[in-house]
Every structure is written in structure tokens, then in C-alpha cells.
């Protein structure tokens, strides 16, 4: 077989002396990952519908039913009594992001099983950048879902301050990043798609119910001091409170600190888990 290269071949022209990547190349990569995640979201219309139906069932049925049972006293950030529907709206916004983070985790496990993940992992750009890009893409999708929910909630009569729709955006980005990073970390630990049901039972439901999403913590403290401690240890509580305060144009500094800290810890864990030399993947063998 002849192997003599043709002069001036255009097919393999990677400059052997070229080193590093430009900022433009990083941005192209980031936009490509976000674009792909957006396309996947558009292709999975059922995912969008179910992402909206879930909180709306809570808002339109659960909250309406419990309105007269669960009274909410005046607690920050509210400066007056609020209806129960209004109280749980930030919790449901965070719930959308929680489920989206876990959905991203499920997608990563699926991609790993199907082989698509390999294309992402053999990119020459740094792996931490690829994973952060994926995280940002997932967060962008979750933020779109939350605003769609807010629109429907507004039609239902939930009307936070107009400026709140803007001030909540950074909080949604931060909480989306935290929950997405948690999902990414979990995806590295889940060996098979079948094991994902465990995430529902052991992560999503406990995180959601043992938080301030559905009831204020002072109420929890009254009935169960132990559960109150669990709620305070739950990072999701702080995501909910960060969103709640931001929706009313305020900053809850403690929640902000906890969300930032947890994002850093979860992301560091995910980066280590997906690191070729340190992570879990190489110990298991080719998927």
C-alpha cells in the first residue's frame, strides 16, 4: 500500500507548531455546547411540558388546597401577609432547577452509556472548561423553564415586584449552577442508567421536602427540631431562600455564601471525578 502523502494536502493541516487556544475558540466551544443543549431541549418537548406541569400541579392544586390550612406569618423578605401560593412560588422555581439539574445528570449518564459523552471528553479544550460549559448550558435551559413558569404564575395572580423578575436572574443562575454541579457529580457516581431511580428517592425528594420550599423553617422547628436541623443542613434550602429574596429585590447573604460554597465543592468534586488521572471513570473500564 502506498503511503506517500500528496503535496499540499488540505485534509490534515493542523499546524504542528500551534500551541494553546484563543479566547475566540473557547467562546466557540461554549456556544457550541449551549447550542447543542438548547437543541436537545427543543427536541424533547415532553421534557419542557413536564418541567412546567410539575410545579404547576403544586401551585394550582396543592397550594390552593392548603391555602387555608397553612398560614404564613410576616417573615423576610415579605413585608406583609402573603398567600400560600405566593410563598411556595420561589420553592417551585428552585424545584424546576433541581429537577433540571438531575435531568442533566441523567442525560450525562445516558450519553456515557450511548457513547456520545466520549465526543465531549476527547475535545482538546481543557476538560474543566468543557464540563463548566455543559453546566452553563444546563443552567440556561433551567432559567428559561423558570421564566416560563413565572409567566403562568403571573397569569394565576402571583405578582412579585416587577423589578424582581430582573433581580432574580443572577440568583437563578447561581442556584442553577449549584444544582447542575450536584447533578454532574452524581452522574459520575452512577454506573448505569437503571440506578438513576435511586437519585429520585435519595436525592431529589429528600432535598425538596426537607427544605424551606413548601413551608417556612420556623414552622418546621415548631413541629420537629431534628427536621429543622436537617433543613438547615440542606443546600437546597439556601437555593430556595436565595431565589425568594432575589425575587423581592433583596439579597440573603447567608444563602448567597452557602450556594457559592456548595457550587464550588460540587463542581470541584465533579471535575475530580471526570479527571482522567484521578476520576472514577477510568477505574471502571470502557463504557
Amino acid at each position: 500500500m502506498t503511503t506517500a502523502p500528496a503535496a499540499g494536502s488540505e485534509l490534515h493541516r493542523t499546524d504542528e507548531a500551534r500551541r494553546g487556544f484563543s479566547l475566540r475558540q473557547y467562546l466557540i466551544c461554549l456556544s457550541g455546547v449551549v447550542w447543542r443543549e438548547g437543541l436537545r431541549f427543543l427536541h424533547q418537548r415532553e421534557r419542557f411540558v413536564s418541567a412546567l406541569v410539575r410545579p404547576l400541579v403544586w401551585l394550582l392544586i396543592f397550594a390552593a388546597g392548603f391555602r387555608s390550612v397553612l398560614g404564613v406569618s410576616i417573615i423576610p423578605p415579605y413585608d406583609t401577609y402573603v398567600l400560600y401560593e405566593e410563598y411556595i412560588t420561589p420553592g417551585l422555581m428552585a424545584m424546576i432547577q433541581l429537577f433540571n439539574g438531575m435531568q442533566s445528570s441523567l442525560s450525562m449518564v445516558y450519553d456515557r452509556e450511548m457513547g456520545n459523552m466520549r465526543i465531549l471528553l476527547v475535545s482538546p479544550l481543557p476538560r474543566w472548561f468543557i464540563l463548566v460549559s455543559k453546566l452553563m448550558a444546563g443552567t440556561a435551559v433551567s432559567v428559561i423553564q423558570v421564566y416560563a413558569y413565572l409567566l403562568i404564575a403571573w397569569l394565576w395572580g402571583i405578582e412579585p415586584p416587577k423589578l424582581g423578575y430582573l433581580t432574580v436572574l443572577p440568583a437563578l443562575v447561581l442556584s442553577g449552577m449549584m444544582l447542575g454541579a450536584l447533578g454532574m457529580l452524581l452522574s459520575s457516581m452512577i454506573k448505569q442508567l437503571e440506578n438513576f431511580a435511586g437519585v429520585m428517592n435519595f436525592v431529589i425528594f429528600p432535598m425538596f421536602f426537607a427544605s424551606s420550599a413548601l413551608y417556612p423553617l420556623w414552622r418546621v422547628q415548631e413541629t420537629s427540631p431534628i427536621l429543622y436541623v436537617v433543613c438547615q443542613l440542606n443546600p437546597f434550602t439556601y437555593a430556595v431562600e436565595l431565589v425568594r429574596f432575589a425575587l423581592y429585590c433583596q439579597v440573603d447573604w447567608k444563602s448567597l455564601g452557602v450556594v457559592l460554597g456548595c457550587t464550588a465543592v460540587f463542581l470541584a468534586g465533579a471535575l475530580i471525578a471526570y479527571d482522567p488521572s484521578k476520576g472514577l471513570i477510568g477505574r471502571r473500564g470502557p463504557a
Binding site: 487556544f21 484563543s22 475566540r24 475558540q25 473557547y26 466557540i28 466551544c29 456556544s31 457550541g32 455546547v33 447550542w35 447543542r36 437543541l39 436537545r40 427536541h43 465526543i119 465531549l120 475535545s123 482538546p124 479544550l125 468543557i130
Partner: peptide
């Protein structure tokens, strides 16, 4: 779920080509 061109575009982006 992507077209052939979209698969290639995604790969190009992962290599910093746009």
C-alpha cells in the same frame, strides 16, 4: 436527534472551530 451537519457543527465547536 441531530442532522449530519449539526453533528459536525457540534464537533467543530468542541475543537474551537466556528
Amino acid at each position: 436527534d441531530l442532522s449530519v451537519a449539526q453533528n459536525l457543527r457540534y464537533h467543530a465547536a468542541l475543537h474551537g472551530l466556528g
